[in-house]
């Protein structure tokens, strides 16, 4: 019975070691925000974080996730108010919305390392995430908006520390 650390909780699950993490998250843990799209790592709908890195949970076995910190869309922020989530609402990004958990998780991994990405960096980082509604331009705008907010927040925090 593999032990998983997911969104800050430790859980043991009943699943064979080769079970894709995606299905354990969705079915056993009943966290359905992470989506199944292609089962082959081609669309990004199932993106979660393993130790802060964006990975495709359909291509990650439960065994590979043991001992690592798993974060899903449900755990990205306590109240759904991560700067990216706020930006996604401000820019009215989602249409059908099905790919957007994966888009947000993919973008969050970028901004956690680089809060001032160029447009090319955003495109390179996000190109593996398909959006069949083609909301790409709003995704780009929302990432830039969130990055700005994160930089402002961090600058404000630094000033506070400085004084």
């Amino acid at each position: 019975m593999p032990n998983l650390n997911i969104n800050g909780r430790n859980m043991s699950v009943e699943a064979a070691n080769d079970t894709p993490l995606l299905w354990v998250i969705r079915e056993q843990l009943q966290m359905t925000g992470t989506k199944f799209g292609c089962g082959a790592g081609l669309c990004g709908a199932c993106t979660v974080h393993l130790n802060g890195e964006a990975v495709r949970s359909c291509q990650t076995s439960v065994a590979d996730a043991v001992g690592k910190k798993i974060t899903t869309i449900e755990g990205l922020s306590a109240k759904g108010d991560h700067p990216l989530q706020k930006a996604w609402i401000a820019e009215q990004v989602p249409q059908c919305g099905y790919c957007q958990s994966g888009q947000i998780m993919q973008a969050a991994a970028l901004l956690s390392k680089n809060s001032n990405p160029t447009k090319d960096e955003v495109v390179a980082h996000m190109d593996g995430n398909l959006c069949r509604c083609m909301t790409y331009s709003r995704i780009q705008k929302a990432i830039m908006r969130a990055a700005t907010e994160m930089r402002t927040a961090s600058a404000t925090g630094n000033e506070r520390r400085a004084t």
Binding site: T32, K35, T72, W88, I89, G97
Partner: peptide, 27 residues
Amino acid sequence: VPQLDIPSKTNGTAKYGIDVMLPGMVY
């Protein structure tokens, strides 16, 4: 005006057909 369904599509709570869970359900 802001679309009413959008917040639920940024936090994983919007329910699609694939997310339906019924008691005793199998796959």
